[in-house]
């Protein structure tokens, strides 16, 4: 790890002022559960670290009934997992939060940091000058790719590692982003980018921008959501595949639905076809099976990750059945 200057701003303006206009030299730190590892392995070598924890007001959960849920970017993942309103009304998010990493990491990690974490690809994290680090090739293509993406990949085949991002996408969250003077609101579906748009970054944040809050609209009545994560190890692992779903039910029919996969693509992957097909579906085991069969039809698995297609379908089926008490 390189030596760095540690800056403790008192407010967002000071923090934004400290941030420069390039990625390398000045970085924000919140929980540090990802950044410290990146620094220890020399993937990040900042001159200045700007500590967001010194700014008051970024750690909060506010529920405005009938309107929205507002979560400060520095809110700990544990607090989200345990919050009674989130568990009841924004279930997918609480379930995702409860399965992040391990209790120790959830106690340190923040929601803002979680959605901005860097890929866990073993080539990116390892001693390989890969595409995402400015090299010429993605080593996963010809290499060991059991955990890599099956869709949206080229030219870099990472998966997005965040559990919370998948759930937030299913709940159609908005991110409030501060850039020096003013704040803007960005729908989460517009936040993440695929490698063909930008192979070096996983989202649209500019070097001087800071996520301050996450807003989630109040679910309409009849709405339900959930999150299922599959990991090789029972805890302290990233999703091999995960799925977040929100549906609005009307008697035995689904009125609208949104299906988002994690672990299959370089960003939380919205399955448009499924989401559309859900509308009007009668909730029975065989209709759900038929439905899930059409998902990820465009997937192009690599040598070692074909199983992810089966896994994704099965997880979706199980989650839909659970949400409908089948």
């Amino acid at each position: 790890m390189k030596n760095f200057t540690y800056f403790q701003p008192e407010n967002l303006k000071d923090a934004a002022k400290q941030l420069g206009n390039n990625w390398k030299d000045r970085l924000l730190i919140a929980g540090g559960t990802d950044l410290l590892g990146l620094m220890k392995h020399n993937l990040e070598r900042p001159d200045v670290l700007i500590n967001l924890k010194s700014i008051a007001g970024l750690e909060k959960i506010e529920y405005l009934p009938g309107k929205e849920l507002r979560i400060g970017a520095l809110t700990k993942i544990t607090d989200i997992a345990e919050h009674p309103v989130i568990r009841e009304k924004f279930t997918a998010l609480a379930e995702a939060a409860g399965q992040v990493a391990s209790p120790q990491l959830r106690n340190m990690g923040t929601i803002g940091g979680n959605i901005c974490q860097r890929p866990r690809c073993w080539y990116y994290r390892g001693d390989f000058n890969c595409l995402r680090k400015g090299g010429d090739i993605c080593f996963a293509v010809e290499g060991r790719n059991k955990f890599h993406c099956i869709i949206g990949g080229a030219p870099c085949f990472i998966v997005h590692p965040s559990d919370l991002a998948v759930a937030l996408q299913a709940l159609e969250a908005k991110l409030i982003i501060f850039s020096g003077k003013k704040s803007k609101s960005v729908a989460i579906k517009d936040f993440f980018v695929l490698p063909d748009a930008d192979v070096y970054r996983e989202n649209i944040l500019k070097p001087n921008e800071i996520i301050t809050e996450i807003h989630i609209p109040e679910p309409a009545s009849g709405c339900q959501s959930g999150y299922l994560k599959f990991q090789e190890r029972e805890v302290w692992d990233f999703a091999t595949v995960s799925v977040g779903v929100s549906i609005k039910k009307n008697a035995n029919f689904i009125e609208t639905g949104l299906v988002v996969f994690g672990g299959v693509a370089p960003r939380p992957w919205i399955e448009q076809k499924i989401s559309q097909a859900l509308t009007g579906t009668i909730l029975k085991e065989n209709t759900i099976s038929e439905l899930t069969d059409i998902c990820l039809q465009d997937a192009e698995p690599l040598e070692e990750n074909k199983y992810k297609v089966v896994l994704a379908k099965n997880l979706l089926k199980n989650l839909l059945m659970r949400l409908n008490n089948i």
Partner: peptide, 18 residues
């Protein structure tokens, strides 16, 4: 797990070596 192209080991931490 080793990378066949470079002969380097990929599982050098306790996340990848489970």
């Amino acid at each position: 797990i080793m990378d066949p192209m470079t002969g380097k080991t990929l599982t050098t931490n306790l996340h990848n070596y489970k």
